[in-house]
């Protein structure tokens, strides 16, 4: 599956989940369970050099946990807007 990741205010990325699995580590060390594991939204973020600490991931306008497997072909990434005086 290919996923379109729209980083608001920046670029839109096309990412192949199959490529992510290959990048994911030493395949010889993978267990059968690892090979079945789907890439997560955090894996998508890592691919575009973003940290879960600085962004929110949304699918169909709703936030999704970064540790969940990628299920959607369209993902929106928002950099967080926060801070404060103290």
């Amino acid at each position: 599956m290919r996923v379109t990741v729209d980083v608001k205010g920046e670029e839109t990325h096309e990412i192949s989940l199959a490529d992510l699995r290959e990048i994911g580590g030493d395949s010889s060390a993978d267990t059968a369970e690892d090979k079945e594991a789907k890439p997560t939204y955090a894996d998508l973020l890592r691919e575009i050099d973003l940290s879960p600490h600085e962004v929110s991931v949304l699918v169909e306008g709703r936030p999704v946990p970064e540790d969940q497997p990628v299920e959607s072909e369209q993902v929106t990434v928002l950099r967080l807007i926060k801070g404060g005086s103290r």
Binding site: S56, L58, G61, R62, P63, L78, L80, I81, K82, G83, G84, S85, R86
Partner: peptide, 9 residues
């Protein structure tokens, strides 16, 4: 009073 955050939605 000392922080702000905008909801992602």
């Amino acid at each position: 009073r000392t922080r702000y955050r905008i909801d992602p939605e």
